[in-house]
Amino acid sequence: MQTLNPSKLLAVFTLSTGLLLSTQAAQAANYQIDSQGMHAAVQFKIKHLGYSWLNGRFDNFKGNFEYDANKPNASSVEVEIDTTSLNSNHAERDKHLRSADFLNASKYPKAKFVSTSISESGDGIAVKGKLTLNGVTKPLTIEAEKIGEGKDPWGGYRAGFTGTTSFKLADYGITYDLGPASTEVFMTLDIEGVRQ
């Protein structure tokens, strides 16, 4: 039986270790969206009769994302929103928006976005994925930008992004007549993640 001499054994060990470390380094880090500390927000707005903007938010949501600054195209994101937590700062209106006329939150208490591809060009990031809302799943693109990343004061590491998107209510089976100026909803997602 042939045995390796110590110098060859050391070379093999060094090569194996280097390959393992380079593989680990190439993997994107996992981040938990800091919705508990509310360093994140999911907000929406829609025109009211074409005269003004109605603004609101979802108070409860969670999610995570994979991100590597050296390989942003290998990133991914997943966000789940509690539709019963809709808040437009008006209790009666919120009750109506949660009803079967709109979000049908009692039947579909969760909305979900899952990315399918992420591409970076210049200062912008196109996050393509699928949004499930009101029991309907459709493709959706979020135009995003990176705000920053780095160490936090508590020994952790964070990364933050902002993104905007819009969609027709009718695409998700919401056909309640709000008038011709109020058929499209605009959303802003500000997420800060803590590296796990």
Rank of each mutant, 00 (worst) to 15 (best):
residue 173 G to V: 08
residue 36 Q to C: 03
residue 44 F to D: 02
residue 169 L to A: 11
residue 192 E to S: 15
residue 14 T to N: 03
residue 148 G to D: 10
residue 19 L to W: 05
residue 161 F to C: 00
residue 173 G to I: 11
residue 139 P to Q: 10
residue 110 K to T: 15
residue 195 R to G: 02
residue 164 T to E: 10
residue 67 Y to S: 04
residue 33 I to Q: 09
residue 111 A to I: 08
residue 41 A to D: 12
residue 180 P to I: 11
residue 31 Y to C: 00
residue 30 N to P: 05
residue 9 L to G: 08
residue 127 V to C: 04
residue 176 Y to M: 07
residue 117 S to C: 03
residue 84 T to M: 08
residue 48 H to I: 07
residue 48 H to K: 11
residue 71 K to G: 00
residue 192 E to F: 13
residue 158 R to T: 13
residue 80 E to R: 11
residue 93 R to W: 07
residue 62 K to I: 03
residue 142 I to M: 10
residue 192 E to Y: 07
residue 182 S to P: 00
residue 96 H to Y: 03
residue 121 S to D: 12
residue 11 A to F: 10
residue 194 V to D: 03
residue 28 A to E: 02
residue 120 E to T: 12
residue 153 P to T: 14
residue 1 M to S: 14
residue 96 H to Q: 11
residue 119 S to Q: 13
residue 153 P to S: 05
residue 184 E to W: 06
residue 41 A to P: 02
residue 194 V to K: 14
residue 196 Q to E: 15
residue 15 L to F: 13
residue 35 S to N: 05
residue 118 I to N: 00
residue 190 D to P: 00
residue 33 I to R: 01
residue 149 E to I: 07
residue 161 F to K: 06
residue 36 Q to V: 10
residue 176 Y to Q: 13
residue 165 T to C: 04
residue 27 Q to G: 08
residue 98 R to T: 05
residue 1 M to F: 09
residue 46 I to Y: 02
residue 20 L to F: 13
residue 182 S to K: 02
residue 135 G to M: 12
residue 44 F to Q: 01
residue 62 K to Q: 11
residue 97 L to Y: 08
residue 151 K to S: 10
residue 145 E to A: 12
residue 101 D to C: 07
residue 125 I to A: 04
residue 54 L to A: 14
residue 122 G to T: 05
residue 5 N to E: 08
residue 35 S to D: 05
residue 87 N to W: 00
residue 185 V to L: 03
residue 151 K to A: 15
residue 96 H to I: 12
residue 121 S to T: 13
residue 129 G to W: 11
residue 8 K to Y: 10
residue 107 K to L: 10
residue 83 T to E: 02
residue 129 G to M: 09
residue 112 K to D: 04
residue 53 W to T: 01
residue 86 L to A: 06
residue 85 S to P: 04
residue 71 K to I: 00
residue 28 A to R: 08
residue 75 S to H: 04
residue 132 T to Q: 15
residue 108 Y to P: 03
residue 168 K to S: 10
residue 178 L to Y: 06
